[in-house]
Design a protein around this nucleic acid. Structure first.
Lengths: 213, 213
DNA sequence: CTCACCATTCGACCAAAGTCGAAGGTCTGA
DNA sequence: TCAGACCTTCGACTTTGGTCGAATGGTGAG
């Protein structure tokens, strides 16, 4: 399987999807390219074909609460390299994306050549994540310790679901969900569900906006 | 008291405070001008002197969770006209500010003449709030029904406080806080504390950011 | 003044959230 | 194969959250 590459492109904007697909098809002839327009579709595709060589992911898709969705995918499929493709964002968001396991970041204004170059580098095993990362975001550090199932529980908590609803959606007992919540609260360093939701939402919605007087 | 006007300027940036003070002092000679740099200071000043003719308020101050703080002040002092002074914001935020009882909106890049003109209009009883407002934000409409004490409770809920802590901070029993929470949930149309906090925080942090490809 | 209305307060009761301990499953390295 | 670590699951128990009914006190309409 020398050149039987496969990619998954996730973006809610069809135009962007096609542009990325054309860029990849040109740079890697014969590559299999799958598409997804919502967070749910991404999960389905990855479930069907977990062996993709790279996932090109937009952070502003319906269903994924920003970085929460990234972390969720990352937990479910640790082996899949994830390349963030998004509009210009604050450096803090980009840094956090790396902390959550993203392999690279591509600005939507990048040229097709640039995209191909970055994807090729990721496939070669290079990670564009800055090895330094500085002191890093403390909450992100703590959140990175969560297991896949715990991420799913947290993602539903952030949407306002109660334990009973979460249990039903995940197909487990309510007692199980409660146990997960307990661990989540301890790992995040908070003392109530409400505080956990507040902190998690700060991840999804980085800054109100920069001040420009 | 023909021209014994008094103003309260609330902004965490000293430079902006001085600019506003100079604009008002020039346009309304003899006016008494008080200052505040945090949300807590605003509350103290309004408690000490509730008869101010206008409050010039910055939304990005420490302590006030965006529009939550505005609504809180509005509930505590319904008679004080509030003029929002802030950096450029999305139209949705400005619209919501009006729904929460703001009398006018001044961009920080406005000239001193413009500021004086708007303040004069507000003092004359004119409200710059668009009478139409369209379908309006449904949550904001529901939230506007909250009483002052209920706003205080909600503001503390949004910070992640538990009922016991809220009771202590407000100097009432825990049972009282629970009763308030019940009414708040019903008025907001949600079924749990977590959902209420999620919706309330959507007010404070409008959008992630505009897309600029 | 009297009545009605509403904000605020609380106690008693029920539902949801959170804690503790434990069992079974999987994977890794000795 | 066995030991240890970890994820997932759950039941029993405690704490917190939320509902209902009721008493108090203020305020405005008639």
């Amino acid at each position: 399987m020398a050149d039987a590459l496969s990619f998954l492109i996730a973006d809610d904007h069809p135009m962007v999807r096609d542009a990325l697909a054309s860029a990849l098809g040109q740079a890697f002839s014969g590559a299999a390219i799958a598409m997804a327009g919502t967070f749910a579709e991404v999960q389905v595709e990855l479930e069907r074909e977990p062996e993709v060589d790279a996932l090109l992911l937009d952070l502003d898709m319906p269903g994924m609460d920003g970085l929460t969705g990234l972390a969720l995918l990352r937990s479910d499929h640790p082996a899949v390299p994830i390349i963030i493709v998004s509009a210009a964002r604050e450096p803090a968001t980009i840094r956090r994306a790396y902390e959550f396991g993203a392999s690279a970041y591509i600005d939507k204004s990048a040229s097709l050549d640039e995209i191909a170059r970055i994807v090729r580098a990721v496939l070669a095993g290079e990670i564009f994540a800055p090895p330094e990362a500085g002191p890093a975001d403390s909450f992100a550090q703590r959140a990175a310790q969560l297991t896949p199932q715990q991420w799913r529980v947290l993602a539903l908590m952030v949407q306002g679901d109660q334990n009973k609803q979460i249990a039903h959606k995940l197909g487990v007992g309510e007692a199980t969900v409660k146990a997960h919540v307990t661990v989540i609260l301890r790992k995040l360093g908070v003392r109530s569900r409400t505080q956990a939701v507040i902190e998690a939402r700060n991840l999804a919605l980085p800054q109100p906006e920069p001040v420009r007087p």
